[in-house]
Nucleic acid binder design. Structure first.
Lengths: 269, 269
DNA sequence: TATTATCGGTTCATATATTGAACCACTGTT
DNA sequence: AACAGTGGTTCAATATATGAACCGATAATA
């Protein structure tokens, strides 16, 4: 691994729950040497990506980040056009919602929105979503570039009892998603969370991300699932439109079929 | 220079005016080898700091930037509490305004605001402000940490006929600022721009940044200068308050004296 | 249609920059 | 006063970065 990559990895340790990190602490987290970590931090500081809190001597993210973010959003306006549909979705579904974007072979969280409906909420405090264990990740693998499957297979870490840990399991899960048009994760990342997800497209015509609902598993019912799927379709269409794309016909067809067959199922049961 | 630092420097080449850069182009800009640059770009891409536009094969800033920015603003809320005073300032002064922050020994732009009053506006399209040539930079050197003077002296690049290019010139400019409490740059960065600036403080009690007005030099008059200085004081006080700090008494004293003596001058002339 | 000039990406011998155990100075605690 | 934490520094050992030359593809030029 290049020293540049090691340096950049340090940035990922800063989060809203861990906003300031001291040198020694960061060494433990990153499992790296102190001298090395110190030099890496200096490189990051020179560029303004981090800065040292003059009071605590601990390190935190720096002001250069904000400029880069401004440029990024001016270049590829993603957050713009996500807020409104996401808010609608959170209210309609009554659950916590996320939008994720695919960059390379990684699924990043772009935005999230809580619903005030219930006291208990699903809180997902991660920055990159595992491809094989989350609804967003699985949805992205199912409808994104072919190579993602290999990447997903190369890291089948087990999070819960229902996490897909074999190639068979994963292929089965993906196949279901390709048949229904909705990403789905049944407590496979956190034991109390049931995820549902729909793909988002941009002007390239390729999958650009996913919009997801993380339900508290205890209150997940077939009726709620239908409501959520309906709202996910609306949100996915709107966000795709705002990103300059449209939902491909074959996905729309899957959704139409999926909802009909569930109607049948529901009626039958 | 460490390879990590070289890698990070590549990020600075992306801006709203240059949002997407190809490999060869970036090599020219950064004056570096193609193979090296390519590897550096790959390291940045692995971390999500940049991504490759699948259509053009060119590189652009990536989605990880947005998360980091969210964390940064949650950690150190700087943009929050700048917008309103900056907007007020731009309207009152009728000129383009900026807020800059000091991080380490570098002055970064945090936010800017145009006034719709005039058709011609000062447009400063840079991300880091030269310490010796801009009102923000000079103001930061004058009231920031002592070490900044050395850094400023080590890079006295000439931008215009009035740029301070000798230690003497710079010391004189800084001395004036320390006497008046206002940063000042008389066409020393761009020939048509006259800069005025006031320091901002945060909860540490040290200088945290500066707020500046970039006037079109042709319409700069002593009367306008007084108006702007007045508005700068208001903005600097408000932003300092929003950042958890206050303007130190000795700065307030300078401002009081400065405005009085200018009154005299104005009356005399 | 052949030629040339780009582009993004890759190779491999060379040589330079990275690494980490041990160390220092300082601060607050026991 | 001994100890356990910090953040920061040193230097020999060595793992890593480097860049000229190369490749295949695309696009403009003659």
């Amino acid at each position: 691994m290049s020293s540049a990559a090691k340096t950049l990895e340090l940035l990922a340790h800063f989060s809203t729950t861990w906003p300031e990190i001291g040198l020694s602490q960061l060494c433990k987290m990153a499992k790296r040497d102190k001298a090395t970590t110190y030099r890496h931090l200096q490189a990051l500081e020179e560029t303004g990506l981090i800065e040292q809190n003059p009071m605590t001597k601990r390190y935190r993210l720096g002001p250069a980040i904000l400029q880069l973010a401004q440029t990024r959003e001016a270049t590829v306006p993603r957050k713009l056009g996500v807020q409104a549909p996401l808010f609608e979705l959170a209210n309609a579904a009554g659950e916590t919602c996320h939008v994720t974007v695919l960059s390379g072979t990684t699924v990043y969280e772009l935005a999230s929105c809580d619903s005030p409906k219930h006291g208990t909420r699903a809180i997902i405090d991660i920055q990159t979503f595992p491809l094989h264990a989350t609804a967003s990740g699985l949805c992205t693998v199912a409808f994104g570039p072919e190579t993602l499957m290999e990447v997903a297979l190369s890291n089948l870490r087990q999070f819960t009892a229902t996490t897909a840990t074999t190639a068979q399991d994963l292929h089965a899960a993906i196949q279901t998603i390709r048949n229904t048009g909705f990403g789905r994760a049944d407590r496979s990342y956190e034991t109390e969370v049931q995820g549902l997800s729909a793909p988002i497209y941009d002007q390239t015509g390729h999958l650009a991300g996913a919009v997801s609902v993380a339900s508290v598993a205890a209150r997940f019912t077939p009726e709620l699932e239908r409501v959520i799927q309906n709202e996910l379709m609306i949100a996915a269409r709107q966000i795709s439109k705002n990103w300059g794309g449209t939902i491909p016909a074959h996905i729309e067809a899957l959704w139409a079929k999926s909802l009909t067959s569930e109607n049948v199922l529901e009626t039958a049961s």
